[in-house]
Nucleic acid binder design. Structure first.
Lengths: 333, 333
DNA sequence: TACTCGGACTAGAGCGCTCTAGTAGAGCGC
DNA sequence: GCGCTCTACTAGAGCGCTCTAGTCCGAGTA
């Protein structure tokens, strides 16, 4: 920086002004400084800048490698953060790298706020974190913790999906549970409620699972094995999320079960996988971009006005009917 | 830090020593300092640390959101970097966020080296980058650029896959090209060479595609349409990567084409998707963990010894035979 | 002319660390 | 006692910026 200042014949302070795009420098000088900087290959050191400024204007994002929906969210976080003048730092949790570790890394880099995508850490930890920094949780409700919360109205989404299936004549609708996955408790509850509302209480069946392809595959195998033992297949399955639906779909199709002729499958998330299937997955869309924007906005709002309390955004999901849901097969009389 | 020093009754320098785990402090003092720090909630500011140290000991990783293989790589990068005492910063390229932007963000955060996962930027830019910082490219060869290069021996992988298929009796083996995707030029070349070597020159067919599910779906539709017009299906398809194979697989299965009875499908990458399919995708494994370790090691080696020239690591891929490849169907005489 | 005012620019402190050079004191041999 | 070394510790400069509190100068005003 000193080199640039000298070579451009100005003070370091002026260079700083130019690089921060602040008033106080003539157009002429601005151009000269930028030109010199470019020649020298100078690029402001964000560490020093950050140190001097006292604020980092950086948002940390913790996500889980392999969660396709997270990557959709990340793609939405960047532009919104940029629009608001914030930098984004990513830190991944992975096998062998706990969420806590990923979060601590962000904190060490002086992120002013952390946005957690579907965190799985303990409530107590998250609450403590929320007291230490502005924290936003996406998808996962963290009861009694000082964190903002962005999610979609799981209940509404499930209800739409269930109404759709019932309208198509389905009665034996099975739900594959998302286990500890974000939102699954709400989805499970909504599934039960919808079944009850449609007078299908006796057909309620929740199969324990997870938000992974494996879970869908296993459930598929389970259902097929049951069929071979005489128990009829359900006519429709409401999967825990798209990945699970994918796994199920592959297993069923592979076994000669035609979707949606024999079984209808509905997913959840509308992650980019869903449009990719040849006939398209009927699923409940969570608008990743909108969720990302809310998360960023919540974080920034609380950074700029420390008095603000954490908020909750509930976004309306929307059933997207594609090819994997159809009329219920006629019951063998 | 000053607070900690005062409360522990030592100098700031001593606190620094303790936190850097350096010799020069008694066990007793160490414990006292750490205890006080914990009470106060002190956590070293990495910006200041970085500034003072002159080195950031941070590796920047650029990846593309949605590329499943990249997430596999990331999972491998973290532990190796940690082992060598380096921090990792992630920056994603996404729709609306160019690779250059992602890379510049890393540089702005004073990453000492950047590891680019399957970069798609122009050679000239990457070369310039390579002259500015230690740069490692994974999967994508960047000719004439000053960058380390880690990849798998595409040729060997393809050859293994082709030998496998030919051994199973296949002759009409089609290759779906990966377009501009990393490694695809080599794979295409190796496919042609293998066909020639097996005396199948007249059956060579490369269908333009990309490393995406869409591409597989489109190719599937194309092949099915051709079949309907009288041209027989190929008996085997070597896809550009796993995602492409997935798309193809779904399309074919959906249309009643049985895999591998009617058509064999081979992927490339062995990304975590492949084990997840119910019958398992026959694919060429690129060992993500090993590649990640090499990439990190290359970066760190060149950081610690500036005289080192960029190197190239060619890892041997390995054909993993699973369920999607089988004997060629008997030709309708 | 004397003044104010605002735009362009500068000096220098300070951000929270690390690191070099140094001190103080204990332990040792002679 | 002396010098020596070794360990435990400290003072203070400096990392590359930002920011506050200025200075300087020319145009506008009375």
């Amino acid at each position: 920086m000193a080199d640039v200042a000298e070579k451009a014949g100005v003070s370091r302070a002026l260079v700083s002004i130019v690089f921060r795009n602040q008033p106080g420098a003539s157009q002429e000088t601005r151009e000269r400084v930028l030109r010199v900087a470019d020649e020298i290959g100078y690029r402001p050191d964000s560490a020093a800048r950050l140190l001097a400024r006292g604020r980092s204007r950086t948002l940390g994002v913790m996500f889980t490698v392999h969660q396709t929906f997270h990557t959709d969210l990340i793609a939405g976080i960047y532009p919104e953060a940029e629009r608001l003048g914030y930098d984004v730092l990513l830190s991944a949790a992975a096998y062998g790298r706990s969420e806590e570790k990923a979060i601590e890394a962000l904190l060490g880099h002086r992120c002013e706020a952390v946005i957690l995508l579907g965190p799985d850490a303990e409530s107590a930890y998250l609450d403590e974190l929320g007291h230490r920094t502005v924290t936003v949780s996406v998808s996962r409700r963290v009861p009694h913790a000082r964190v903002d919360f962005v999610h979609s109205a799981e209940g509404k989404g499930v209800r739409q999906a269930m109404d759709h299936l019932v309208e198509l004549g389905h009665r034996r609708i099975v739900h594959i549970d998302g286990g500890r996955g974000p939102g699954s408790a709400e989805r499970r509850r909504a599934y039960r409620a919808a079944m009850r509302r449609h007078g299908l209480e006796s057909d309620v069946r929740v199969i324990p699972g997870a938000h992974t392809e494996e879970s869908g595959i296993e459930t598929g195998r389970l259902l097929l094995a049951e069929r071979d033992r005489g128990r009829p297949l359900p006519t429709a399955v409401l999967a825990g999320n798209d990945r699970c639906a994918m796994g199920l779909l592959m297993t069923l199709t592979r076994a000669g079960v035609e979707v949606p002729r024999d079984v209808s499958v509905v997913g959840y998330d509308d992650s980019h996988l869903s449009h990719l299937m040849p006939i398209g997955l009927t699923t409940v869309r969570q608008d990743a971009v909108l969720m990302a924007e809310h998360a960023v906005r919540f974080a920034v709002d609380r950074l700029e006005d420390r008095g603000l309390e954490p908020r909750e955004a509930v976004l309306d999901p929307k059933l997207v009917v594609r090819g994997t849901s159809g009329p219920a097969p006629r019951e063998p009389a």
